[in-house]
Write a protein that binds this DNA or RNA. Sequence first.
DNA 1: ACCTGAACACCGTTCAAGT
DNA 2: ACCTGAACACCGTTCAAGT
Lengths: 224, 224
Amino acid sequence: MGERNIGRHTRAKRPPLSRDMVVAAAIALADEAGETGVSMRAIAARLGVQAMSLYNHVSSREDVLDGMVDSVFGEIDLPASTTDWREAMRDRAASVRAALQRHHWAVGLMDSRRRPGPATLRHHDAVLGALRAGGFSVAMAVHAFTVIDSYLYGFVLQELSLPFTGPVEFGEVAEGIARDLPADAYPNLTEVLTEYTRRPDYDYASEFDLGLSMILNALQPDEA
Amino acid sequence: MGERNIGRHTRAKRPPLSRDMVVAAAIALADEAGETGVSMRAIAARLGVQAMSLYNHVSSREDVLDGMVDSVFGEIDLPASTTDWREAMRDRAASVRAALQRHHWAVGLMDSRRRPGPATLRHHDAVLGALRAGGFSVAMAVHAFTVIDSYLYGFVLQELSLPFTGPVEFGEVAEGIARDLPADAYPNLTEVLTEYTRRPDYDYASEFDLGLSMILNALQPDEA
DNA sequence: ACCTGAACACCGTTCAAGT
DNA sequence: ACCTGAACACCGTTCAAGT
């Protein structure tokens, strides 16, 4: 019982694993099954190998997560220092949001890694560079970076955790929640839900841009 | 081998479990050991019971997490509708930040629950109520709520994930990172790190207030 | 009504052994 | 140099059985 795999070792001779291959398999797995789906055993299975083999290329599951996050940072377009800083920040924010939409599991992980990889460092350096080029002092650039990223990650965190994706779904979900709610206990919540059930035009993209513009307009480079 | 526990059943007769007791034990565990420490088996052990007993009071581990999050929302002071809306929002934000500082594990969970509990609903209702009382239309109140919470949760997410708590530690950590960094590869990052190593006065609390004030000043109730 | 023992299908990680 | 089998100490959850 159980076939012996003859071919694999004689003919194909699978190329040796590498850290990058492990990380890539982990990302594919996470995109399909979420962060919880990323087990050492599942990564190994996807690579046609036993779980223990992975430890020749990564030091632990945490190490895999570090690699995954750095890989997502690598997908984000770096802001240019040559253009208007507000435009550069807007483009970068859109690129981060798009990357996190492709990799939902990453939102809560991006800022939590204690060992930033090269793509992460390059990203942070480029953001600071764009702000410095726009006339910000070091302290003000850090301040602006913090405010923008707080808004950016906080918004996407909320956006991705809600159980709908478009305006139409939003209306349906709102209607469902409103029905279940004891109406007089939460009058303001009920008011919002009925309003958006009637007129389901809530759009995440424009809501995001609105808040971001508000923040970018409130920020100003130091005067010389 | 192994002592039989005679006393427990004859003398003490432990009061029956309840959902609240399970959730409280889970929170205590999470405060000590992080979210990963919250296993059904560990919760049960803390309550002097077998893991399977918990399923008489909660339906799953997810259900426990729902309860934990609602309990944290219960610790947050509700904003008053009587005072100035900006002050109410400032106080509420401080209360959220304080609660999340007591329960680090909660940051990534607060917005991710699909089944909000009563304390969560009460909280959201009160925030909307304070904004409505301040003159915001329904749509503008939702907008303001989104912007404020994005910044709030995003800031705390970054704050709690960084490996230091005060200005002094910040200086030390910055120095350590700066030493390891290939200096010419990340000039802007290096610049920031050396600046803050020399003058380690970075203070999270005032940085938080600065960004929040910026946002609150940019927000305005609809004119009549 | 509540609690448990045994079981199932999983985890991450170590270590000595194979090639 | 790289991969593996066996083992250790864990997971969440189901189910039939106990009181």
